[in-house]
Design a binder for these strands. Structure first.
Lengths: 237, 237
DNA sequence: TACCTGTATACTGTATACAATTTTCACTCC
DNA sequence: GGAGTGAAAATTGTATACAGTATACAGGTA
């Protein structure tokens, strides 16, 4: 996707939002582009990023690229060594473990916080999503299932009322986006998730915040097991 | 502190580390400087940062300042609106609440993880630190107490073996550094902390990871109450 | 061969220049 | 007086230029 296309899309998507988006920033586009290149394997782990070359490849100058690199560094996509440049970070099992340990704690917390002020409407929404998931599981549509599944989790992350919590979680899962998607191709993964979601919903219905927290944490760690299973499969294959 | 002084200091401190530090980066120095200016009130909440002016004040160009601004944005010190620049973020009670909720979860997690492989030597170290704290409490040395107190918490955050967890916690507490320091001037705060630390140490001794997690979380939330108490005191004063 | 060493090259860090946008403010009109 | 208007000033976004550092490699030495 060219920068111009990106601009038009951004404008279309955010038409009613603040006019901030009317003029997208190169640094944001570049960050998106580089993340994409890493996800698609166009930039391989361990590969050194030459600012001059990448900037010219993207048709921009080094300045916005450098600002994007700073962002991608804090997001964990790149490792920057002063005066030697940025290299694409490899995600090891250790990294995945670290991320999931934190994710379990954060999502669990969000469930506990959200449970405090969840009402019938919220519960209904979660049930709706889970019903959709059942349908998508029957169709075996991995991509749509993945997206809807994320909506389920997003729901209480947002409902927690803790904006930082939501952002931190987003930043974490972005790093393992592809692995998570892959993990849903595992046999029985759909059903497993749906069943656990049901238990989580019941905990919300009972207004049992502690239980909701525990179940959500366990649910995350199940995701961890799925991801590592898949990771080992692909590494040996 | 001038940039040259900073360079010399950095070199002295990191003499044995990678030679990376031999040539400090302006963007890092600038980030430190701006954080400091915010902490010291030289840059006030809500104040707009004019890149041109600040850069010339610091005696550098806009490029490294801009890169530092990106960093400070992700750290939560600044709020950047595209094409309108950066403003110093105000820390509201809501922010403090968000930060402490997350901090409690993260530190609790680190205690649980650390408890798994804590040995006698680790416990001894924690006891040592707590003894030091008792002495400093008698001397009523707030600054030294604060530093030593942080060492106590750092110990199991590091021992968790989860590097990201440690980094994320650092990034969080940096935002409330001054508030936390202030909170230690509250009557009875020292004793309260020392006593809770003792209970935490006992949990580690019993190898009760769940208990350690709970106690550490509670300890963090006690810190939260202290900070908000102090915050209200100063706002009304 | 293995190990320096100096130089050429490539690359990053920083400064500056230019372009595009936002803000300011005097001015007009109602 | 207040809302709207338009040009000037200020400010951010982006590109480019330059300086200093790291890397690669050729040639020399033990």
């Amino acid at each position: 996707m060219s920068y111009k296309t990106y601009v038009i899309l951004k404008m279309a998507i955010n038409l009613e939002e603040q006019k901030i988006r009317e003029h997208p920033l190169l640094r944001e586009w570049v960050a998106d582009a580089v993340r994409d290149m890493i996800a698609k394997g166009k930039l391989k782990p361990g590969e050194h990023i030459c600012e001059t070359r990448l900037a010219s490849e993207l048709g921009i100058s080094r300045t916005p690229l450098r600002e994007a690199i700073r962002l991608l560094e804090t997001e964990g996509f790149l490792h920057v060594v002063p005066r030697r440049g940025a290299v694409v970070r490899d995600i090891s099992i250790k990294d995945v473990t670290e991320i999931y340990e934190i994710k379990a704690a954060l999502e669990g917390l969000s469930a506990r916080l959200a449970a405090r002020h969840f009402n019938k409407k919220d519960i209904e929404r979660l049930k709706e999503i889970n019903n959709e998931l059942t349908k998508l599981a029957e169709k075996n549509d991995v991509n749509k299932f993945f997206k809807m599944h994320n909506q389920f989790h997003d729901y209480f992350l947002r409902a927690s009322g803790n904006e930082r919590l939501y952002q931190m979680n987003c930043s974490l899962i972005e790093q393992i986006h592809r692995l998570r998607l892959l993990s849903f191709t595992l046999e029985g993964r759909f059903e497993e998730a749906i069943e656990q979601h049901e238990r989580i919903i019941k905990a919300f219905e009972k207004r049992d915040a502690e239980l909701a927290e525990r179940l959500v944490s366990e649910n995350v760690m199940m995701g961890y097991r799925a991801v590592t299973t898949k990771l080992k499969q692909t590494k040996t294959a």
